[in-house]
Amino acid sequence: MAMQITPEEAVKKIKNKSSVMIGGFLGAAVPLVMIDKMVAEKIKDLTVISIGAGYRGGGVDIGKLVLNRQIAKYITAHVGTDPNLIKQIVNQEIELELSPMGTFVERVRAGGAGLGAVVTPVGIGTEVEDMAEKIIIDEKEYLLFKPIHADVAIIKAFRSDSLGNLQYKGMSNTNPIMATAADIVIAEVDEIVEVGEINCEAIGTPGIFVDYIVQGHTYEERKEIYEALWISTNKL
């Protein structure tokens, strides 16, 4: 069963040097409030695990952790949206671990599903061969990657009931996968409702995976935040 706590309490679960999975996709459906709290708490030397960097241009969502120099290692598939992050990687302030996006996702899934490895043909014939072990199955070459598991996952969902059952809105992207792959899972949601209000068929992540629920921005607040961001960057 999940426990509802404040963002201030939730951020205490993340220590210096923790590995932290952050749900979302290049800025969309990210846990904005929890990221702001991590920035305010100045938690240092983090290993951040996210499918890509923050919103294009940097300095937004995960980009705030970059600007605040809180990241020691970054495990991802794509850093191209954040010039500040690239600069810190080039200056060797941040260690980078890359894998192809589909491989990254399966590594997280394997980490949450008790699997020992991901075996994929993607990357054969490229530099990715140097990032993994090559194995042959039925005369075909594959790359073997290790699973990814984190100390803490902070994910974003639309709403939660008090059991931690999560419902998503729009693209759930990496959130349901990351919800399975950390010792402590903190779900930031737009609203928290009574048990029974989310129909069982609408539950995207069953509460068994969720440890803590945090009230984030409401849906209307997020809509305002994203409209302003999209308008200011000529995307809307």
Binding site: A29, R56, E227, L236
Partner: peptide, 28 residues
């Protein structure tokens, strides 16, 4: 403007709309 959904975006996190019959899902 005013009709975007913060959770409906493309791979560049830019706002899009879903067509009738469209589906949303996770990255796996």
């Amino acid at each position: 403007r005013g009709e975007s959904n913060p959770d409906i975006a493309n791979a560049g996190a830019e706002p899009i709309t879903m067509l009738p019959g469209g589906a949303v899902f996770d990255v796996a």
